[in-house]
């Protein structure tokens, strides 16, 4: 099938997805007690001001009208203004996206690489003591609450060893641009990435292990063994490549889950990411930001799954798009 047509079709599917996401969230926020007017006006505010805020933000209109107005607005590519900071939601989200992408992307990338390497390594001898221990450890790792792990890392690396900072993405005194800034951010990234990576790496260890072990039992591996390829070549060149397929699939599906882990990690390390933005927005009933962020995240996940499918098709010639 024509690649461009496929991509366009898949992107078109984003429309109903966005629609459902909007409706679900709009409904939830609308049904919930409390709205932004109380947050902004404070608890002793004059009723007139509460009414004025509701009017200014269109909260005084019937639900369906609010929804319709919002849909029309989003349809025209405008996510609106934040109820709190009164700045464009799109800009607010974009100011947080790099931080989240950096954190999630790096830890996910490292998890996949390290997890696959370890998983492949233990798959050489399935059933061995090493395999049992490492597999159990992998399960243990993704059973650790990330906030607990985060604090432990802080106490050890930031307080005890004074090696890495534990708050934010850059230092107050740090350089604002150039390579110094990059190094500063890298330095701040170490602990949050380590925390997030630790809890997600186990998944890929298990996945790679079973995938490689399964591939190693395939006939074509027997063929290359018979041809005389050394074990390491077979493992790295043949088994790994075939075993990557399920890893790639899960990677796409898991992005949402990792974004999730990010809100807890972002909280522990005061990371200025999307997760915290949503959390703050929810507590402040900042509907435009909540909606915008949910849309952004769903679209990101959808894109990730599209890219996953493309990569899968590239890796596995049997798959046609």
């Amino acid at each position: 099938m024509n690649l461009r047509r496929y991509v366009v079709l898949r992107l078109l599917q984003l429309v109903p997805v966005t629609l459902v996401v909007i409706i679900i969230n709009f409904l939830l926020v609308h049904l919930a007690p409390g709205d932004v007017s109380i947050i902004l006006a404070g608890d002793t505010a004059d009723p007139a001001y509460l009414a004025a805020i509701r009017e200014r933000y269109g909260l005084d209109r019937p639900f369906l009208e609010q929804l319709w107005r919002y849909l029309v607005q989003v349809g025209s590519g405008d996510l609106g203004l934040s109820f709190r900071s009164r700045e464009p939601v799109f800009a607010e989200i974009m100011s947080r996206v790099p931080a989240t992408l950096l954190l999630v992307g790096t830890s996910l990338g490292l998890s996949v690489i390290i997890g696959t390497v370890i998983g492949t390594w233990i798959a050489r001898r399935p059933g061995s003591t090493t395999d049992s221990v490492v597999s159990a450890l992998a399960v243990g790792l993704f059973s650790v609450p990330v906030f607990w792990l985060g604090l432990m890392l802080v106490l050890f690396f930031a307080v005890q060893l004074q090696m890495f900072p534990a708050m934010g993405m850059s230092s107050v005194d740090g350089p604002r641009e150039g390579p110094g800034r990059i190094l500063d951010i890298l330095h701040h990234m170490v602990l949050p990435v380590l925390a997030l990576m630790t809890v997600s790496v186990g998944q890929y260890v298990r996945l790679a292990r079973s995938a490689v072990a399964e591939v190693m039992g395939e006939s074509y591996i027997t063929t290359v063994r018979a041809i005389g390829f050394p074990d390491r070549t077979i493992m790295m060149h043949y088994a790994l490549r075939n075993a990557l397929l399920p890893v790639v699939t899960v990677l796409g599906l898991q992005l949402g889950l990792v974004l999730t882990g990010a809100v807890l990690t972002e909280t522990v390390f005061s990371w200025p990411g999307l997760g915290r933005l949503i959390y703050d927005a929810i507590l402040a009933r900042d509907t435009p930001v909540i909606m915008g962020a949910f849309i952004a995240m769903s679209v990101t996940v959808a894109f990730a799954s599209l890219i996953t499918d493309l990569v899968y098709a590239f890796l596995d010639p049997r798959v046609t798009l």
């Binding site: 900072p165 534990a166 708050m167 934010g168 522990v268 390390f269 005061s270």
Partner: peptide, 18 residues
């Protein structure tokens, strides 16, 4: 005014002198 969203981490950062 710096965001430190976890009180325990703030305490750790105080202990470490930051």
């Amino acid at each position: 005014f710096r965001q430190v969203t976890d009180v325990n981490v703030a305490r750790a950062e105080f202990d470490s002198g930051r």
